[in-house]
Amino acid sequence: MNDQRQALSCRPQQLLLYYYAELGAEDLCQVEQHLQSCSVCCAELGELQKLLDAVPVITPELSSVELGRFSARVMEQVQPQRRWLSRPAWGLALAGGVALLITLNLNVLLPESAPVQTKDPMMTADQDVLLNLELLQDLKLLEDLELIQELEQLG
């Protein structure tokens, strides 16, 4: 009878919250009282502690140089125009490009007058891979592809 009452008050779900100190005052008091008299829950808590204490709190540490590099990368992304124009090399290249376009007749760039270029098959394959990789970042597209695949399977 006593054992039955004890079993009824076992709340194994609470043990995890107890481990992470997530119980409110009332629940905490009840669990602590229960643990004093229930060897099953004590053993269960012991197993839980053994497992969770062994899960290492992994904190990947990055050096200050690596963090600086990351920060620079982010800042470059959020201020593209300012950075881009602030670089003399890019400014010169832009000016040079505009001058070149003015100097050359734009017709040269039209398809009919463009010299026929032999496509490097390796380069084309690489471009396809790049294109595909870019496309595969689109979650919506992937979800649509999955749906099509599932519909095909259904016939």
Partner: peptide
């Protein structure tokens, strides 16, 4: 002041990358 944003990145980047 864009340097303020850089300060935010520096303050949070380690934890966020982790």
């Amino acid at each position: 002041d864009e340097s303020g944003f850089e300060a935010l990145v520096n303050a949070h980047s380690s934890k966020i990358i982790g």
